[in-house]
């Protein structure tokens, strides 16, 4: 197991390197730097001086290594859009809203999704089943910003119950949290349902029934435990979906989180901020992969005793 984790860490390092090089090259291959196309054209001299100051006049690989050396010291440089602070300082303010809203969304969405999926599997073709499948399809296919828009239109514009945007007062959190909860809810509803149905159709469940075990004990002692394994594998797509969705949720609800900085960094070609965000996100995803694989291995006795995947 330890060897396995080590191997995975090595492969994460490789992936991380490849992604960072690709992104770095991509961002520098574009004609036009941060000082082009601005409202205030800069004179050539000022421009050259600024470029030199920011190290943008050196060869690409030198720029890359300078940059990565900084990254190792958690120095991501200075964001072009607010030169008064560092990227890391800006991001350390930004992660809190994202974490609170996203975390609450997952904590609320996932259990509801699991319950819905269970109910749907146990009562097939009932209204519960249709509700769960409907919500799951909706949440997994319709882009998050469309869901957010729908929520705003219904609850803020039409019913006027809740504020549409902002950050601070808890009632402002409700709609974004619901929007964040959409993907975990949908993912878990769908996968719980199919995992439960799979297990319910296995011969061993028929045997348990034939033995005269009560339906309740069959479900809670046997079916749930066997359905748990595929549900762990869902963690990753759920995580990715929620994290990417956060960009749009935050943009829609004007929450000053990581996602909105991502949007603004993209729109203003803020290389340092953009690089930092991409690298952090890649790292996050790599570790999400690792965690979900480890969970899977721990939960699955067949893999655990076999010692290999």
């Amino acid at each position: 197991m330890i060897l396995y984790i080590l191997r995975r860490l090595v492969s994460i390092a490789v992936t991380f390197f490849v992604v960072s090089v690709l992104v770095f090259l991509m961002m520098h291959s574009v004609p036009g730097g941060p000082f082009d196309g601005n409202d205030m054209p800069l004179s050539a001299a000022v421009r050259a001086k600024l470029m030199a100051q920011l190290g943008l006049d050196q060869p690409l690989h030198v720029q890359y290594f300078n940059y990565m050396a900084g990254v190792l010291r958690l120095d991501f440089g200075v964001p072009y859009q607010s030169p008064g602070e560092t990227v890391i300082g800006l991001l350390s303010r930004a992660w809190l809203p994202s974490l609170v809203l996203g975390g609450l969304g997952v904590l609320i969405g996932a259990p509801i999704g699991i319950l819905l999926g269970m109910a749907a599997a146990l009562k097939r073709n009932s209204w519960m089943d249709y509700l769960a499948s409907g919500l799951a399809t909706l949440g997994l296919t319709v882009p998050v910003f469309v869901i957010s828009m729908g929520l705003i239109l219904i609850f803020a514009v039409w019913l006027n119950w809740l504020p549409a945007s902002g950050w601070g007062k808890p009632e402002r959190w409700i709609l974004p949290i619901i929007a964040f909860a959409a993907i975990p809810l949908a993912t878990y509803a769908r996968y719980t349902r199919s995992a439960m149905l799979d297990t319910l159709n296995k011969p061993f469940v028929t045997v348990l029934r034939a033995k005269g075990l009560s339906e309740r004990r069959i479900i809670f002692q046997h079916v749930l435990r066997n359905s748990a394994i595929p549900m762990v594998t869902v963690f990753l797509p759920m995580f990715i979906g929620t994290a990417t969705g956060s960009i749009f949720v935050e943009a829609m609800f004007r929450v000053p989180g990581l996602g909105s900085y991502f949007v603004s960094s993209i729109q203003s070609r803020d290389y340092p901020l953009e690089m930092a965000l991409v690298l952090m996100v890649t790292l996050m995803f790599c570790f999400a992969y690792l965690i979900s694989d480890i969970l899977y291995a721990l939960l699955n006795p067949r893999i655990r005793t076999g010692g290999r995947r």
């Binding site: 990417t244 960009i247 991502f262 993209i266 729109q267 996100v281 995803f285 992969y289």
Partner: peptide, 20 residues
């Protein structure tokens, strides 16, 4: 494929879209 699956499509698309 593995490389493509580590990077979520929407993020990468945003990056590429921003650049192009």
């Amino acid at each position: 494929i593995e490389l493509f699956s580590v990077v979520p499509p929407l993020l990468a698309a945003m990056l590429l879209g921003a650049i192009t």
